[in-house]
C-alpha cells in the first residue's frame, strides 16, 4: 500500500499547489495588465492586494447557485468538473525538478502522448456546458470551442512530434535531459523555433485565451458557454482556465526552455534539486507573464480567420517542420544529432 499512499500524498500536494497557483495567477494577471494599461490593479484586500484571490473565492462560494429551468441538470453540473479534471491531471507527467520523484507519474515513456490525450479530452467541459445550458449563446460557444480545439490540437501535436523526434524520447524527463548539454543553446527553442512558435500559438488557442478567446467573446456571445453559470460552478471554469494556463506554461518550459535544467542543477544532494525546482518555477512564471502580455496586446481573431489560420497555415507549417526536422536528423546536420 506504500505506493498508493505516496501517490495520494503527492496528488494532494499537487492539487494544493495548483490551486494556490491558480489563485495567484488571477491576481498576477490583474496586476500585470493593470501596469500594462498604466493603472494599479487591485490593491485593497490585504497588503498590495495580496488577499484579493481569497476575497474573490469567498464571494463566489457564498453566491446563490442558480440553475436554468430548461437546462439538462446532470450534465449542467457535470460540465465544470469535466473542465477542471483534465487541467489538473496534465500535471501528472510534468517533471517539476531533477529526479523522477518530482513528477507524479514518474518517468513514463508515453508522457507526451498522455499530455496530448488529456488535452484532447479537455474540450468536453466547454462543449457540454454549452449544450446543457440550453441557451443559444452557450450552445454557439460550445460548438466554437469544440471546433477550435479539434482544429488546433493537430498542429500542437505535430509541433510536439518535432520535439520528440529531436529527443528521440517520448518521456518528458527525457526531453528535459536532452536539452541539457551544459549551455543555454541546448534549449529546443533555438533548434526548433518553428515548433516553439506553433506550440505557443496553439497553446493560446487551446486555452481559448486572447487572441483566440472567441469561445467566450463578450461582444458576440455574452460569455459563451459559461453564460448560464454562476457562483462556484463559474469558479470551476475559471479555475480550469488558469490551471490550464499554468500547465501549458509548464509544458512550454519543459519542451522548449529546458525544463528544470540550469546552471548548478547537477550539484549532488539537495542543492541541485532545489535549484532545479527554482529554475522551473521561474521559467513557468515567465511564460505566464507572456500569456498575459499577449492578452493585453493583441485584438481578437475573426472566427473564419481563426479556422483557416489553423487548417491552412499552422497545420501545413507544422507538417513541413516535422519533415524538415526528420530530414535534418537523417542527414546528420550538427545540432540535430
Amino acid at each position: 500500500m506504500a505506493p498508493i499512499l505516496e501517490f495520494t500524498l503527492k496528488s494532494v500536494a499537487l492539487i494544493l499547489i495548483a490551486l494556490t497557483g491558480f489563485a495567484y495567477t488571477t491576481l498576477l494577471e490583474r496586476k500585470f495588465i493593470g501596469r500594462l494599461q498604466a493603472r494599479i490593479g487591485p490593491n485593497r484586500a490585504g497588503p498590495q492586494g495580496l488577499l484579493q484571490p481569497v476575497a474573490d473565492g469567498l464571494k463566489l462560494i457564498v453566491k446563490e447557485s442558480i440553475t436554468p429551468a430548461q437546462a439538462d441538470k446532470l450534465i449542467y453540473f457535470l460540465a465544470p468538473a469535466l473542465a477542471v479534471i483534465p487541467a489538473l491531471i496534465v500535471f501528472a507527467v510534468i517533471p517539476f525538478g531533477k529526479g523522477s520523484w518530482l513528477s507524479l507519474a514518474g518517468d513514463i515513456n508515453i508522457g507526451v502522448l498522455y499530455v496530448l490525450a488529456v488535452l484532447s479530452v479537455g474540450v468536453y467541459g466547454s462543449v457540454l456546458a454549452g449544450w446543457s445550458s440550453n441557451n443559444k449563446y452557450a450552445s454557439l460557444g460550445g460548438l466554437r470551442a469544440s471546433a477550435q480545439m479539434i482544429s488546433y490540437e493537430l498542429a500542437m501535436g505535430l509541433s510536439i512530434v518535432a520535439v520528440v523526434l529531436m529527443a528521440s524520447n517520448a518521456s518528458l524527463n527525457g526531453i528535459v535531459e536532452y536539452q541539457q548539454p551544459g549551455n543555454i543553446l541546448g534549449w529546443l527553442i533555438f533548434r526548433q523555433p518553428v515548433a516553439a512558435a506553433i506550440f505557443a500559438i496553439t497553446a493560446l488557442a487551446e486555452l481559448a485565451r486572447a487572441p483566440f478567446d472567441l469561445v467566450e467573446a463578450e461582444q458576440e456571445l455574452t460569455a459563451g458557454f459559461i453564460t448560464e453559470y454562476g457562483g462556484m460552478k463559474f469558479a470551476l471554469f475559471y479555475m480550469s482556465e488558469y490551471v490550464k494556463m499554468i500547465a501549458m506554461s509548464a509544458l512550454f518550459a519543459t519542451f522548449f526552455l529546458g525544463g528544470w535544467s540550469g546552471p548548478g542543477v547537477n550539484e549532488p544532494g539537495a542543492l541541485g534539486v532545489i535549484l532545479s525546482v527554482l529554475y522551473f518555477a521561474v521559467k513557468v512564471f515567465v511564460c505566464l507573464l507572456c500569456i498575459v502580455w499577449v492578452r493585453a496586446t493583441l485584438p481578437r481573431f475573426r472566427y473564419d480567420k481563426l479556422m483557416s489560420f489553423g487548417w491552412k497555415a499552422l497545420l501545413p507549417i507544422a507538417l513541413a517542420n516535422v519533415m524538415v526536422t526528420a530530414l535534418l536528423i537523417v542527414s546528420g546536420v550538427p545540432g540535430y544529432k
Binding site: L113, V127, S146, I150
Partner: peptide
C-alpha cells in the same frame, strides 16, 4: 493513450459536434 486521444478526444467529439 491512443484510445483516449483518438476515440474520446477525436471521434466522440465529432459525434457530439454532429449531434449538436
Amino acid at each position: 493513450v491512443i484510445q483516449v486521444s483518438v476515440y474520446a478526444g477525436a471521434i466522440m467529439v465529432l459525434f457530439l459536434f454532429v449531434i449538436m
